[in-house]
Amino acid sequence: MSTAFSPISVDDLVAQIADGALLAVPADYSGAPMAATRALIRRGARNLRLVTVPQSTLQVDLLIGAGCVAEIETAAVTLGEFGVAPCFTRAVLAKTIKVIDATCPAIHAGLQASEKDVPFLPLRGILGSDLVKHRPDWKTIDNPMAAGGDPILLIPAIRPDVALFHAPMADREGNVWIGRRRELATIAHASKTTLVTVERLYDGSFFDEERLAAGALPAFYIQAVAVAERGATPVGLFGEYEPDLAHLRAYAKEARTEAGFAAYLAREVGTVKAAA
């Protein structure tokens, strides 16, 4: 038996994301897989159903603007300090994508339900929000553990087909180091397939170093790893590099028009493969 693994190319990695897949992606503070996202756009991905964990910024805006997305479950899409996410906003208003509005703890809870392979998790709060009216898949029940008269919301399990994120490093056994960004572990645990890009390879095993082991995601959750140096740029990567603020500021301005977004895509992402 061998524990050795071989990284693959970023293009081969994103080839494993089928059109129409339910794809989970992290927030911008948690390893946004930007190099893989650009490759996914170039490969001409279509009809992706995104789940943001729990919100997103540039990554999702690019996928939507490039026409890769059919629907998105999210707690928010925004460029943060730089304003609205222009492609997301345009697509929602034009109804070219379907938005399934959620709230951060509900997305975390749905993934946690899948970690346990149970059909739902209950959450306090949220009752009386209009979100509940528009989420027929969220059910309010009377707490069966109480004497009665205690309504509580059930959040169904979220089981993504694919999780895709960027992390600082993978070791020689294919374990991936995520540090304290434990939501990446949750996404991987909950998803059928996990694809990861990393800054670099670590010569050894994280499990030989107790301090690294605590932040490791075991290889048995991970189907493939590709090396993509500065693979979260222009979004930053925890502990590694900061966001490119000038780039993000310029994007917020340029992508305000469809022509501006097309120019950005041609310049920063490259040629998109024509639909087959």
Binding site: P54, A76, V77, V84, P105, I126, S129
Partner: peptide
């Protein structure tokens, strides 16, 4: 942008 964690 969306609801974030506000409803909770």
């Amino acid at each position: 942008p969306g609801s974030f964690g506000a409803p909770y």
